[in-house]
Amino acid sequence: MDMECFVENIVTDKQVTSDIKELIPDAGLRRRMSRILKSAVMTAIECAGGTDGIDGIDAIITATGLGCLSDSERFLRNMIADSEQLLNPAPFIQSTFNTAGGQIAMLRHNHCYNVTYVNRDCGFEDALLDALMRMADSQSRRVLVGAFDEQTPSQYRIMERMGFWRHGTCREGSVFTTLTAMPTDSAIAELSCMDFLSGPITEENCMKSYSGGDDAVLLTNDMEDVGLFPVVPARLFAEGVRKIAEGAERVIIYDRHGGDRQTVMVLKCIGH
């Protein structure tokens, strides 16, 4: 698809160093947040360049696989244990998939476009596509896109019973990126292409089709990681951006989701 944008910043939860009280000064907002909500909102703020940075964002687009799972589970357990009596509303309202997006908006009373994709591990790319469309239509100039996923012991146990987790990779965490329609002084990379393929292609063909004659680096995901969690492709995207920051001219990201969906994204260094 002929749409492009610029990656201004990308932050993973591991890189967040600021204190939570600094990033989320409102104690009222903080106290109901589960672990994953804190992680997602803090990563988003850090990515936006601090709480004030949220003011400059004109679209907030998030992706998650199972959402705020510990809150959902807590409400479900209480409901069953207490036979549908005397239920605390907090975990129910926090369990909604768009809670993280909503809380980011609420922090600075940002009234902009705010949507959440819940489409297994394709959600992050769906969110990127949404951002590209908004910028192509001049509806947005600086978009915050992020993925977050939470794991709980019960979910781990259930997926183990289903035969997942042979490698035990961690699928929990948050990744947020700010994208701009025009290159800014701090732009790291250009997202110059995003294609959805209806079937798998070989890595060789992928290189041939998307390298454009440059010295391209190909990044692909581990098939073991295909499944439910958009934070996995988001981490791959972050790795691609890092490679550009370290000097690569072009990075091709080939995300195999299995079945009928494969995504190819091309990142280029600025001014190339």
């Binding site: 104690a27 009222g28 109901r32 605390n88 509303p89 907090a90 309202i93």
Partner: peptide
């Protein structure tokens, strides 16, 4: 600084 949800709690 409590809110409507706290009232329910």
């Amino acid at each position: 600084g409590l809110d409507s949800i706290d009232a329910l709690e």
